[in-house]
Simulated assay, not measured.
Amino acid sequence: MQEQVRVLVVDDQRPFRVAASAVIARMPGWSVVGVAETGEEAVSVASGLVPDLVLMDFNLPGIDGVEAAARVAASVPGVRTVLCSTYRREDIPGADKVAAYLNKEELGRAALQTLWQEIRPAA
Rank of each mutant, 00 (worst) to 15 (best):
L55R: 04
A68N: 13
N103A: 13
R109E: 15
V23M: 03
V5C: 08
V32T: 13
A111H: 04
M56T: 10
N103C: 09
E118I: 01
S21D: 09
T114C: 01
D52T: 03
N59Y: 06
S31I: 00
A25L: 01
R88C: 05
Q117L: 06
E105P: 02
W116G: 01
E3K: 15
V43C: 06
V72W: 04
L102N: 02
V23H: 04
V54M: 08
D64P: 03
W116V: 02
A110R: 15
V50E: 15
V18M: 14
G78W: 12
N59P: 01
V54L: 05
A110T: 13
F58E: 03
A42N: 09
G39S: 09
G108Y: 07
Y101G: 03
T114D: 14
A36R: 03
T114E: 15
A36V: 06
A122P: 08
A111N: 07
A22G: 14
G34M: 01
R71Q: 15
R26S: 14
L49H: 12
D91V: 01
G29M: 08
A111S: 15
G39W: 03
D52W: 00
P61Q: 07
E105G: 14
A68C: 08
A19S: 12
A122C: 10
G62S: 09
G94R: 00
Q4N: 11
S31Y: 02
G29A: 08
A70D: 06
A100D: 12
I24V: 10
P51Y: 03
L8V: 04
V9H: 05
E37R: 13
N103S: 12
I63Q: 07
A20M: 13
R71W: 08
Q113V: 14
S85H: 05
G65A: 09
Q113N: 09
V33S: 05
Q13C: 06
M1C: 08
V76T: 12
E37T: 11
V54K: 07
R26K: 14
L8R: 05
R26N: 15
G65Y: 12
E67S: 11
